[in-house]
Each structure stands twice: as structure tokens, then as C-alpha cells.
């Protein structure tokens, strides 16, 4: 327990994703729009955030699967850029994110004369995922323990606590901030809020968080 504030300990969890084919696929922008109208919201989540759990070796050219497909399969870089700039974080829920996607795509459909077709083997496959969450049996009693714990966390734990938490929390906040705030550590909480989850891999995010916690708690201390 966070003794100073009488707060429950931070239970470190891990997760594994199960990928599921929806059976829906698009070969042009109109088909993409049609499917987006009704596609399972989990698919929109997957195509925005699932990339974090796939291999990445540098900064991705585009930040979500929709933009990536529009660039590679349709070669429509104007739309790819507009889709890429959609940041899923501020949207209150996935339905409003769906509406934003549709808005951008419909605007583009209004402005083009012909619809480009992707090659048959370059179709967009709508995929969604199920998350299996399990306990690691690690629990942190005090915020200082984050310094040791975060570097050892699996990327699944980082995904669950830093990315997926935003969907679980009413304030759309990651688990680290929720806990730190409860522990009365508002200063550190603000610093965590500045870590942008939308760029870089989970390994990089883990590194950023670990550095941030280390600097905060060891400030002025020679290690």
C-alpha cells in the first residue's frame, strides 16, 4: 500500500493479445468507408494501437494502419497524412474516433474523381483483438519502487498499464498516473502525462518511463 496516502498497491499485470479476423476487407476507399460504418469498435482500436505490439524498427511513416494502407495500397498520400494525424487519445470513446475517421474519408471521397483500387493482395483486412489479462504477482507499495519495476516490465505490461488503461479509466488516464495521483504525487503525474504514447515502440515507451521515474526519484542523488 502507498503508506503515506493509504492507497492500494499497484498490481502489475501483463496481457496477451488474441488476434481475430473479422472477415471484412476493403479494396478501395468506398469499401473502407462502408465497412467503417459498422465495423466492430475493437477493430478500430486494434488498427490504431495494435501496431505497438508489432515489430517496429524506426519511427513509422504513418501512425495507424488506415493511413499506412492508404499510402501503400492506394498511394493517396494526401489522405494518408490526414488519417495519420488523427490522435486517438483525446477522443472520449471509440465511437467518436470512428466518426472522425469517417469524416476524413468522406471529405476525401468528395474531392476525388475516381476511386483507386488496391491490388488484390493488398486489400485491407479488418482485424480485432481480444486481450487476456493476467497477474504477474508483482505489486508495488510505494511510487519509488517504479524505478526498479518499470525496466523489468514486459511490453505486455507496458501496453496494459500505459495504453489500454486509457480505455478503462473514466479520465482516459494511464494506470501509472492514476496511482501516482492517488498517492499524492501530482508533480510526477504531470511528467508522465507528457510521455506521448503515439510515437515509438513499447520498448521505447518503457525506456522513457523508466528514465523519467529514475530522474524524479534520484534527483540530486548520486547513484
Amino acid at each position: 500500500m502507498c503508506i503515506t496516502a493509504n492507497v492500494e498497491p499497484f498490481l502489475v499485470k501483463d496481457c496477451a493479445l488474441v488476434t481475430i479476423a473479422t472477415g471484412k476487407k476493403a479494396q478501395n476507399l468506398k469499401e473502407m468507408r462502408e465497412h467503417l460504418l459498422n465495423i466492430h469498435l475493437g477493430s478500430i482500436y486494434h488498427h490504431f494501437w495494435g501496431g505497438l505490439l508489432r515489430p517496429r524498427f524506426d519511427d513509422p511513416e504513418y501512425n495507424n494502419d488506415f493511413a499506412e494502407w492508404v499510402h501503400h495500397a492506394l498511394q493517396d498520400d494526401i489522405l494518408a497524412e490526414r488519417l495519420s494525424v488523427i490522435d486517438p487519445d483525446p477522443f472520449v470513446n471509440l465511437e467518436s474516433l470512428r466518426q472522425e475517421l469517417l469524416e476524413v474519408i468522406e471529405q476525401r471521397l468528395d474531392s476525388i474523381e475516381t476511386v483507386t483500387w488496391a491490388k488484390p493482395d493488398m486489400q485491407f483486412h479488418f482485424v480485432r483483438s481480444q486481450m487476456v489479462v493476467f497477474d504477474t504477482h508483482d505489486k508495488l507499495e510505494e511510487p519509488e519502487e517504479l524505478v526498479q519495476a518499470v525496466p523489468k516490465m514486459s511490453v505486455g505490461s507496458i501496453f496494459y498499464h500505459f495504453i489500454d488503461a486509457r480505455r478503462r479509466s473514466p479520465e482516459m488516464m494511464d494506470d501509472f498516473r492514476t496511482w501516482l495521483r492517488a498517492c499524492g504525487n501530482d508533480d510526477l503525474c504531470s511528467q508522465v502525462a507528457e510521455v506521448d504514447p503515439y510515437f515509438g515502440s513499447l520498448v521505447e515507451l518503457r525506456g522513457q518511463l523508466a528514465d523519467l521515474f529514475a530522474k524524479h526519484f534520484f534527483r540530486g542523488v548520486t547513484v
Binding site: L11, Q130, M131, V132, V133, R168
Partner: peptide, 9 residues
């Protein structure tokens, strides 16, 4: 078929 399966602690 739930989106997030929390295994019993």
C-alpha cells in the same frame, strides 16, 4: 467473446 478477459487473481 469479451474484449478483455481478466483472469482470476
Amino acid at each position: 467473446d469479451q474484449e478483455r478477459i481478466e483472469l482470476q487473481l
